[in-house]
Amino acid sequence: MTETSPQEFINALPFARALGMRLDSIGGGRAEISMAWDARFVGDPATGVIHGGAVSALMDTCGGAAVMSYPGALTTATIDLRIDYMRAATPGQRITARAECYHVTRRVAFVRATAHDEDSDNPVATATGAFTFDRKEST
């Protein structure tokens, strides 16, 4: 199995590409990933607000990227993810997720994340999740 750098990690995900995700920063168990507003991702046509599922996908990808950037990480998968939706994201604005892998055990990584639109003081959503954590063999 070949090693995958975090940058390649996001570029290699077809669904992250389909949603137009951009890796803004990564390293040391933290990641920032953003996506532009797109009419195809709208959940409620009456308001033009992006579907919660698209925000979930952004949070999940960002959480996974944060885990992959934690020292020693080899692979990861989501065990569970809870998203709290604080408010509707403003239509037309870019959504940015920031995730932090704040604790790892031998096999589990714990992640928290927030997402905001262009008003970075008021989060659109927050998330907490547990991810599998497979380490590189330390030989």
Binding site: A12, L13, P14, F15, A16, H51, A57, D60, T61
Partner: peptide, 17 residues
Amino acid sequence: LIGNPVLPALHGGVIAS
């Protein structure tokens, strides 16, 4: 809809959505 092209597996975000 793929998230992990190596396995391959559906993206967790697709499943959540």
